[in-house]
Simulated scan of single mutants.
Amino acid sequence: MLSVGTYRPPDVVTNDRFRTPDASDPDLWLRRRTGITTRHYAGDHDTVASMAVAAARRALDVAGTGADDVDTVIVATSTHMLCTPPAAAEVAYEIGTTNAAAFDLSAGCSGFTHALAVAADLVSCGTSEHVLVIGSEKLTPRLDPDDVYTAPLFGDGAGAVLVGPSDRDGIGRVAWGSDGGRRGSITQTITWDDYLRDRTSRPPVLAMDGPAVFRWAVELVPQVIAQIRSETDVEIKAFIPHQANRRITEAIARSTALPPTVAVADDVTMSGNTSAASIPLAMQSLLESRAAAVGDVALIVGFGAGLCWAGQLVELPAFLPTTEPSTTTEAKATA
C-alpha cells in the first residue's frame, strides 16, 4: 500500500440525539454498551461515489501519483443504491483516470479487506500496476431511527488506499471465508423484490441480531488471527479490526494474546461502525495518533454481513494528517 486517504462527512452526531429502551441517559447507555461517542452523518449532497472520490483524491495526493497512473478502481460498498452502473465507474471518471477498469465489491463490513486481497493479486500478477481500493458507505439512510439497538451504531464515510508495485510483499496472504448459514444475522427487514411488489410496506432497512453477531465475531476472529500469525514470525505493531463496536474489539484483543505493545485501533469511538470504510478510516486515525508509524506491520481483519470475513498483514502506508492540505505529501511508503 502506497498511501491512505479518507473522507468523513462534517455532520458529527453525538449520542444525545438518540433514545434508549429504558429512557435512561443515552450518552451513558451507548458508551457503556458500544464505546461509541460520536459518528459522522452524510449530507444530502454526499453519495457513496462522491465520498469515494474525495478519499481517492486524498490517497493519490499523498502518494504523489497521478490519476493517469491508476488502471483499476475497486469500491467496496453495500450502500450504493443503484443496481447499475457501479459506483467505481463514476469514481474512476471523476478522479480523471483514463479508461481504468472499475467495479464494485460487496462483502459487507469485510468488503475492504476482500478488495485489498483482489488488488494485491492484480498487481502481483501484472494485470494492474496501480489499484485504488476504496471502502465507502452511506449507511444512515438505510437505518430505522426507531431501532434503538442498531441505529446509533452506524456512521458514514470513505477510506481509500493506493496499491502499487513494490520490491517486497507489503500485503500478506489473505485468510478469508464465509458462513452463509448465518446470513440472517445481518440483513435487511425485507427484500427489494418484496418491497416493489407491495409499495405500501416500509422500504428495507438494516436489521441485525447484535448478540448473535457479537458471539460469532469474538469466536471467529481470534481463529482468523491465529491462522495469519501461524504463517509468519513477523513482528506485528498494530491491530486494526473492523470497527464494529468497542466491546467486540476489546473481547477479540483479550483472546488473541497479542503483545501489550501492539497498538489497537479504536476509531469506532469517534466514527461509529462505517462498514467497509471502517478499516481505512481506523488506519488513518491510528497513524495520526502516532501509535503506529508508516511501514509498521499491521494485522487487519474485516468481518460482518454474509457472514463473511477476510484478514491479512500489511505494511502501513503513507498518510497526511486530515488537518493538512493535500498539496504536499508525507514521505512515500515502500510497500
Rank of each mutant, 00 (worst) to 15 (best):
G5I: 11
T6V: 15
V12W: 06
T14L: 11
N15S: 09
D16W: 12
R19I: 14
T20K: 11
S24I: 10
S24L: 10
W29Q: 02
R31G: 04
R32V: 04
R33T: 01
T37G: 14
H40K: 03
Y41G: 01
G43S: 15
G43Y: 10
G43H: 13
V48N: 10
A56L: 02
L60A: 14
T65I: 14
G66L: 12
V73H: 07
H80K: 02
C83T: 15
A87H: 05
Y93W: 08
I95T: 08
N99D: 14
A101G: 08
A119H: 08
D121S: 11
V123L: 04
P141C: 11
P145H: 07
D146C: 04
T150P: 06
A151C: 06
P152D: 04
G155A: 05
A158E: 13
A158H: 07
V163G: 12
S166E: 12
R168L: 11
D169S: 11
I171C: 12
R173P: 15
V174H: 09
W176R: 13
R183Y: 14
R183F: 15
G184C: 14
G184R: 07
S185C: 13
W192Q: 15
D198V: 11
R199Q: 15
S201L: 15
P211G: 04
V213S: 00
R215F: 05
P222M: 00
A226N: 00
T232H: 15
A238P: 00
Q243P: 01
N245M: 00
E250G: 07
L258K: 00
A263Y: 01
V264G: 02
T269V: 01
M270S: 04
N273M: 03
P280E: 07
A282E: 03
A282K: 02
Q284K: 05
G304Q: 05
G311V: 05
A318C: 09
E330P: 10
